[in-house]
Design a protein around this nucleic acid. Structure first.
Lengths: 221, 221
DNA sequence: AATAACAAGATTGTCGACAATTTGTCTATT
DNA sequence: AATAGACAAATTGTCGACAATCTTGTTATT
């Protein structure tokens, strides 16, 4: 589940993780107000640690804060989704390019065998895009870029917001085997050390995902 | 100077801005430790506001913090510079593409005339890449993308770190008229609503900048 | 009736003090 | 002499209280 292992050393960390999960999973609804005192009693910590947690969520673009007024969970809009996926396209495209340049052969082989292992499930039971598998794939490529700032940006910030959209729009939908094939092609480009192609394919792949979600979103209105 | 007008409403804001400026401009040296008590006496505020300011700086990748140990200003390395410019290339390239799609004609015209106004200085006195002009150019395109998350990311986070590198490596160097010509071509692509080309040109432009700085950096060692 | 000024309540911002953790030094043991 | 352990100093983490600001509802004035 937690690919990028985050260990909560301080109390603020724990509160931050809990709060983030509740928001992303939809237990705290989008657009709702975050009262510092309310949360501090709920989690049994002081207001100071709640404030710090909220500040960190703000840095992730998961909550918005106004001075002297308070913090609200962001609202999910089709514009926001579009914006987010434009950023993902740019950054993960670059990650794929860099992975083609820097990813060690060993890691590429692991990634290949990971996909091969998924092949059976996909072809027989049509259960790809099972969050976990998709996530694992993307995360390994991001790490493969060996760009620490890029890794941090994507895993700390963008990833959770993207998941929030998927979870709250009920993305268990179709997009089954096609995504799998796209993954295959991307890995092949990386294995061939073709950064140019890897970037192009990754960007296409993310565009398709976006379109898939955007359809769902427009259906809900 | 401040394109994206940031007004400090709260005391934390002010401390954050001051601290960020001192770090970026090199008055607080890279790699140095940030003591909360020391800073709180220096700026005459409580530790709480200093903590909040430091947290924000951490979100900008300008300081690094370890739990129960403290915060340090990041150290400037050639790897860090490389990573930063890879990110800029991806994000600003996307910004240029989006600007070609969404930027209003009026803004494009303003941008064109801005460059025309700079032409004299450039051709006659060789003083382009005068920080301000370059900055204004990039910022207008970022805003032209009309992607709010992208705008926030670049202006709040990445921009200041990039400036920190430039300032502390003494980037007043050459790269005079070439950058100007690159700007011209990018605007032309945007005016033609050619997002594909605008992105390519912007990415090249940023690659050149990176190379220019990387040379300086390797000379200093 | 509409608007403006005001007051009460609630929420966020700031502060100083205490608790927990780390770091460095000194001592004791092998 | 080197290592381990314990102690002391300093720094960060957490807390509750107070101050400043915003919001809401009421009253007064036109």
């Amino acid at each position: 589940m937690n690919f990028f292992q985050e260990k909560a050393v301080t109390s603020s960390d724990k509160t931050f993780f809990q709060l983030r999960e509740e928001i992303v999973e939809g237990h705290i609804s989008a657009g709702s107000k975050l009262s510092e005192v309310e949360l501090s009693t709920k989690y049994e910590v002081s207001r100071a640690v709640v404030r710090e947690a909220i500040n960190r969520l703000e840095a992730c673009n998961i909550v918005e804060r106004k001075a002297n007024v308070g913090a609200r969970v962001v609202t999910l809009t089709s514009e926001g989704l579009l914006e987010l996926y434009q950023i993902r396209e740019a950054l993960e495209g670059m990650a794929a390019r860099l992975a083609a340049q820097h990813m060690p052969d060993a890691e590429i082989n692991q990634l290949s065998s990971l996909l091969e292992g998924q092949q059976d499930e996909v072809k027989q039971r049509n259960v790809y895009y099972q969050e976990a598998g998709d996530l694992d794939f993307h995360y390994r490529i991001i790490v493969g870029s060996q760009n620490q700032q890029l890794i941090t940006m994507l895993s700390n910030g963008i990833y959770h917001l993207a998941r929030m959209y998927r979870v709250q729009l009920g993305m268990t939908g179709p997009r089954v085997t096609t995504a799998y094939d796209e993954h295959i092609h991307i890995v092949r480009a990386i294995a061939n050390r073709d950064g140019e192609l890897a970037e192009i394919l990754m960007r296409r792949h993310i565009q398709y995902s976006k379109n898939n979600i955007a359809v769902k979103l427009s259906n809900m209105k």
